[in-house]
C-alpha cells in the first residue's frame, strides 16, 4: 500500500497484469511441439536402429535413453541447449535431454566453488525435486501395485 497510489495491492496487481506483455503462447506451444516431438523422434530412431540390428526392445530403449542423455549433456557443455531451451521451452525441458541439461548446467556453473562442496553439492539443485518426487511417487505406486496384486 502507498498513500500516493489510489489502488490497493490487489487492484495494483490486476493493473500490472493488464499492462504486462503476455507470453506468445501460440508460438511457444508450436515450438515446444516441434522441438519436443523432434527429440522424441530421434530417440525412436535410435531405438529402431538398435532393433534393426536385432537387439531386444528393452535393451534398445535403454541404449536410446543413454545416447539421448549424452546428447543433452554434450549440447549443454557447448552452450547449445540453453539456446534451444529459449526457443523450445517445455519442448526441450520435458524430454530426458532436458533432465540431462538440468544436471550438467549447475555442474558446470558450480565447478568454480570446487569439486566437492561446489559441483558435488549443487549438481542436483535443479533436478533434485524431480528425483525426490519421482522416486517417492514410483515407490508409492509400486506399493499400491503390490497390494492390488495380493488381492487379485
Amino acid at each position: 500500500m502507498n498513500e500516493n497510489i489510489a489502488m490497493n495491492d490487489e487492484e495494483y496487481s490486476d493493473y500490472v497484469e493488464q499492462k504486462a506483455k503476455k507470453s506468445p503462447i501460440a508460438k511457444n506451444i508450436f515450438w515446444a511441439f516441434l522441438v519436443g516431438g523432434l527429440i522424441c523422434m530421434i530417440g525412436q530412431l535410435i531405438a529402431d536402429i538398435c532393433m534393426f540390428f536385432s537387439i531386444s526392445k528393452e535393451d534398445s530403449s535403454t541404449i536410446s535413453t543413454i545416447i539421448l542423455i549424452f546428447l543433452g549433456a554434450f549440447l549443454t557443455a557447448i552452450n547449445v541447449y540453453s539456446r534451444l531451451g529459449k526457443v523450445a521451452g517445455a519442448g526441450s525441458t520435458v524430454p530426458i535431454t532436458g533432465f540431462s541439461n538440468s544436471i550438467v548446467a549447475p555442474a558446470i556453473e558450480f565447478k568454480m566453488e570446487g569439486y566437492i562442496l561446489g559441483l558435488g553439492s549443487n549438481m542436483f539443485k535443479v533436478a533434485g525435486p524431480v528425483l525426490v518426487y519421482g522416486i517417492t511417487s514410483s515407490v508409492i505406486i509400486g506399493f499400491i501395485y503390490w497390494l492390488i496384486k495380493l488381492f487379485m
Binding site: 511457444n28 552452450n79 531451451g85 529459449k86 526441450s92 548446467a105
Partner: peptide
C-alpha cells in the same frame, strides 16, 4: 538459474 540451463 544456472546459465547453461535451457529455459525461457
Amino acid at each position: 538459474m544456472p546459465l547453461e540451463h535451457g529455459n525461457q
